[in-house]
């Protein structure tokens, strides 16, 4: 027999995930506009891999397949991971990363709703540790090609050929056709004792962040605001994350502007915006209390800044996310809201 309540709000996990996927579209559109359609290839590859891995794992675990494939969560993991990998990466890199994310980081922990870590970020972490070379060769934005940022710009056909066969046109090396990320470049040049101001004059940089990539960040910001407006995510994580990142970067910048880049640069380069709205907000691996979300996001921002500025990896969002994921159960335990009628006594579990 069915019991009350007999009515429910028309909503579902797949609808929620679908809205998040939709919210990624403006950013992806910007990506294509500035860097060409190669990213679409990796997104497609990742999607196919994610769905087939998910299906295979569900089958192995003896769980129903259809409802879980329809929940769109595997697609979301795939897209987030594809967006964190250089579009020029060989096809197997995308496949290995996605398969790992879904099979190990998600399904082995019990599937949807049970993964303590953000699967996309686990996939990213595995790739950057195992294949650092492939993971640091990025496409240059259009128009800054030949001679500007990279020695030669590949045509789309040549990009495709490289992705699938690894073959480059005669006389070109991977280094010649790709570049490091703006964050990486900044770090390298700071090591060369250049000042921030000098470095930011390079063509790779745009108004606030990297040329082109800052526009992609705007795209994600736009999508993120849509998520906020539709209350898919609460404001706590994005605001606390971006706010803390801005504050820490601001303090360092004020102390020594020659060595520490302006806070806005930090917000609009790398995966900061994507992370704030799409990655850290993954409901499964983030805290369930509002206070906890503030702590979680602030901690992630702090770690992001530290890894970016003092660490060896090009970006810190992924590792910051994973590190804070570990702390989630503890954070949640200590930030339980006061239950109705227990305010006076103040006793908490």
């Amino acid at each position: 027999m069915l019991f009350s309540p007999f009515i429910s709000k028309p909503d579902s996990v797949s609808a929620i995930m679908l809205k998040v996927l939709l919210a990624l579209l403006p950013g992806i559109a910007m990506y294509v506009w500035y860097f060409g359609p190669a990213i679409l290839v990796s997104i497609t590859l990742a999607s196919i891999t994610a769905l087939s891995t998910e299906a295979a794992m569900l089958k192995l675990r003896g769980r129903p397949i259809a409802p879980f494939l329809k929940d769109n969560s595997a697609l979301l993991t795939a897209w987030l991971l594809a967006l964190s990998i250089p579009p020029l990466a060989p096809w197997w890199l995308v496949v290995v990363g996605t398969a790992f994310a879904i099979a190990i980081a998600k399904q082995l922990y019990g599937g949807l709703g049970n993964n303590p870590f953000n699967p996309a970020m686990i996939g990213y972490a595995v790739l950057i540790i195992s294949f650092p070379v492939h993971m640091t060769h990025w496409l240059a934005p259009h128009g800054l090609g030949d001679g500007g940022l990279v020695l030669a710009e590949l045509s789309y056909a040549q990009q495709l050929q490289y992705i699938f066969s690894g073959a480059l046109p005669q006389g070109l090396t991977l280094d010649a056709i790709s570049m490091a990320t703006p964050l990486d470049t900044l770090k390298t040049h700071l090591h060369l004792e250049e000042s921030v101001q000098q470095i930011l004059h390079m063509t790779i940089y745009g108004q606030i962040g990297g040329h082109g990539s800052e526009m992609v960040a705007w795209g994600f910001l736009f999508g993120g605001l849509y998520l906020l407006a539709t209350r898919i995510i609460s404001w706590h994580i994005p605001v606390a994350y971006l706010g803390t990142l801005f504050a820490i970067a601001g303090i360092f910048h004020l102390v020594d502007p020659a060595h520490y880049v302006a806070p806005l640069f930090h917000l609009f380069t790398g995966a900061a915006i994507l992370g704030a709205f799409f990655i850290l907000t993954d409901p499964v691996s983030s805290p369930t209390t509002n206070k906890g979300r503030l702590i979680f996001a602030a901690g992630a921002a702090f770690l992001t800044y530290m890894i970016r500025t003092f660490g060896g990896f090009p970006d810190g969002v992924a590792f910051a996310t994973l590190l804070m994921n570990i702390a989630v159960p503890l954070i949640v335990l200590y930030t339980q809201p006061t239950v109705f009628g227990k305010k006076a006594q103040g006793d908490k579990p």
């Binding site: 007999f6 909503d11 579902s12 949807l112 409901p283 499964v284 369930t288 209390t289 239950v339 009628g341």
Partner: peptide, 26 residues
């Protein structure tokens, strides 16, 4: 009038439930 719900999925910890709980529970 009261359409049967689609089968239950695992909890994704979205906390929509916590947002509406009148007893401030989780």
């Amino acid at each position: 009038l009261f359409p049967p719900l689609s089968p239950a999925m695992p909890c994704i910890r979205c906390t929509r439930c916590a947002e509406v709980c009148p007893a401030d529970l989780q």
